[in-house]
Design a protein around this nucleic acid. Structure first.
Length: 555
DNA sequence: TCACCTACCACCTTTGAAAGGT
DNA sequence: AACCTTTCAAAGGTGGTAGGTG
């Protein structure tokens, strides 16, 4: 559902559209597995091609403010919303075509951080990636007209550090850096992924990168949250606020005024910025490789000025990675419309599966955890019509066992259950080319059942500076590029020193309900997205079509 | 000892049903 | 009867904090 209601949000969003705010091509064509028999997105109308879709981050300026300070997102066991919330304005869709919008959050690198001396510093190697989950927009699937009518908000997406989370929240590790991504999938006439012409694109807004924490580390971030989040109004400045602060601290006197804090923070921020700019967070060549194994995108943009960007090399304007592609061999099963009326009860406690096969075999076993909980799928009837389930799957193009029909008949999953859904054979996805895919479980807020898969990132893609493009959209890209090579086990990310690589992420984890969390891979074993230097403008924006034979690239 | 996590708190916004008016 | 507006209580989202954990 579009969180933004009539409230002139649409207009507002439109006014916010700006070249720099559009998504950047993501050199990761193999994140979502979508089967397709043709190399070209289906569609009879010219503007129906998914590459024509443009996405602009809403409240980009606010995001930038946070980004400059080093965005932090609280994660709790019960789940915490993101703030700023992830909202986008989409344009360029075919008004009549149905699309599915979903997001996921992938590790930005393979480091663990600590906030020391008022700045974020690498504190070691990242912990195994959490189970990958997708948050499918509640309105999905919906027509392009619907999506373009107003802002598309993912504000109800919640983050948790509970590895056994049964609510479908996105699971993250504390003190790690992450990058949210937006995926737009074109649903076929039956609203089901899996159609041979399904295409999708991925958008990444680097300013939305953040470090997950269980309690705020940077006071500036705390202040920004308080000042901008309506729910934190109670902590806002003013003398009253100061009094509240003191009250909260059990003191009879103001501890410190917000203004004072603000000034102090400003000064400290300057210091921090300087430090960061100096490379406090930078200089982590692993950036490239780190992206390799994450089910995400090659988060590679970094701005030396940005605390978080130090790991997200971005040499250009607040870019966004925009990545469109079609992938063959992978299917997204989406039965939203058809499933809206279906009960989401626990018809299926969990999907049995062989972790070894689905994860290790299909997904190159990214490092992860075996969640004991997964073996005890949470099930509840308390699901709203707005909530649905989405879970990943893989399927060989040959239809390995699970036919579409069968999938279509598969019982819908309770949104509270999907989280525990494990790659079940029938829903599993396989790549025709043998490219490992990274399936995701998703939080599908619609009463729908979705099976998603995320293929390994293709290795080759071309890109170019947004600056040159002005407005980044797939339309600016040409097809016919890189064929996603089976990155599989190959490349160990060998980041290009000093480069702002946009290596693609390797799908890391695939959770199945009922399967315990367990390491899937050796982080170091993840293929690096070639040696492309992100610094090279030509690699700034990559996108493409997978093996389907159609690849998009800048012209 | 320390870094990190959890549960709880008071305050606030959001939401949606109920009541009332047109 | 249908629709719109207003009211209000419940639900849920905040950051702060004390205490717990490893």
């Amino acid at each position: 559902m579009l969180q933004e209601k009539a409230s002139a949000v649409t207009d507002d969003a439109m006014t916010r559209v700006q070249p720099g705010g559009e998504a950047e091509l993501v050199p990761d064509p193999s994140r979502l597995g979508l089967s397709t028999t043709s190399g070209v997105p289906s569609g009879n109308e010219p503007d129906q091609n998914i590459e024509n879709i443009k996405v602009v981050l809403h409240e980009r300026e606010l995001w930038k403010k946070f980004h400059e300070a080093g965005t932090e997102m609280i994660i709790t066991k019960a789940g915490r919303r993101m703030f700023p919330s992830y909202k986008v304005k989409v344009t360029g869709m075919n008004p009549k075509t149905k699309y599915i919008l979903l997001t996921d959050i992938v590790p930005a690198d393979d480091h663990r951080y600590k906030f020391c001396d008022n700045k974020w510093m690498v504190a070691g190697k990242a912990e195994p990636a959490m189970p990958g989950r997708l948050y499918v927009h509640p309105d999905s699937p919906a027509t392009g007209a619907h999506w373009m009518r107003q802002l598309v908000s993912f504000q109800k997406l919640k983050l948790t550090n509970n590895h056994l989370d049964p609510f479908g929240h996105i699971i993250l590790n504390s003190m790690h850096k992450y990058q949210p991504r937006l995926h737009i999938v074109k649903a076929d006439e039956n609203n089901a992924f899996g159609s041979k012409n399904t295409a999708y694109c991925t958008h990444v807004f680097h300013e939305t990168a953040f470090i997950s924490v269980t309690s705020y580390q940077n006071h500036k971030i705390t202040q920004l949250k308080i000042e901008n989040n309506p729910f934190a109004k109670g902590f806002r400045g003013s003398e009253e606020g100061d009094l509240r602060v003191s009250r909260l601290q059990g003191k009879e006197y103001p501890v410190i005024s917000k203004n004072m804090v603000r000034q102090r923070l400003i000064s400290s921020h300057g210091h921090l910025a300087g430090k960061l700019g100096a490379g406090v967070l930078a200089g982590h060549p692993q950036v490239l490789s780190s992206y390799q194994y994450e089910p995400g995108v090659p988060l590679s943009n970094s701005d030396p000025q940005d605390p978080l960007s130090n790991h997200f090399p971005q040499s250009r304007d607040p870019s966004l990675l925009y990545h469109c592609f079609k992938h063959r061999g992978v299917k997204f099963y989406f039965f939203a419309d058809n499933a809206r009326h279906l009960e989401l009860g626990c018809k299926r406690p969990y999907l049995e599966t062989s972790p070894a096969v689905s994860e290790e075999h299909y997904f190159r076993s990214p490092p992860s955890y075996e969640s004991p909980l997964l073996s005890h799928p949470y099930c509840t009837e308390a699901i709203t019509s707005r909530e649905a389930c989405m879970y990943s799957s893989m399927e060989t193009e040959s239809g390995s066992g699970a036919g579409d029909a069968e999938d279509l008949n598969a019982p819908s999953l309770n949104c509270n259950m999907w989280a525990t859904v494990q790659p079940y054979p029938r829903y599993s996805v396989q790549t025709v080319e043998g490219v490992p895919y990274q399936p995701f479980t998703a939080h599908f807020t619609n009463t729908a059942t979705v099976t998603s898969v995320v293929p390994h990132p293709s290795s080759s893609m071309t890109s170019r500076p947004q600056a040159e493009i002005g407005v980044y959209s797939s339309s600016t890209v040409q097809r016919g590029l890189p064929v996603i090579p089976p990155t599989s086990s190959s490349s160990s990310s060998s980041p290009v020193p000093g480069s702002r690589d946009r290596s693609t992420h390797q799908p890391l984890y695939h959770r199945k309900p009922g399967s315990p969390l367990r390491p899937h891979r050796d982080l170091s074993a993840y293929p690096a997205q070639s040696a492309m230097s992100i610094r090279d403008p030509s690699y700034q924006y990559q996108m493409g079509l997978s093996s389907a034979g159609t690849h998009w690239t800048d012209s």
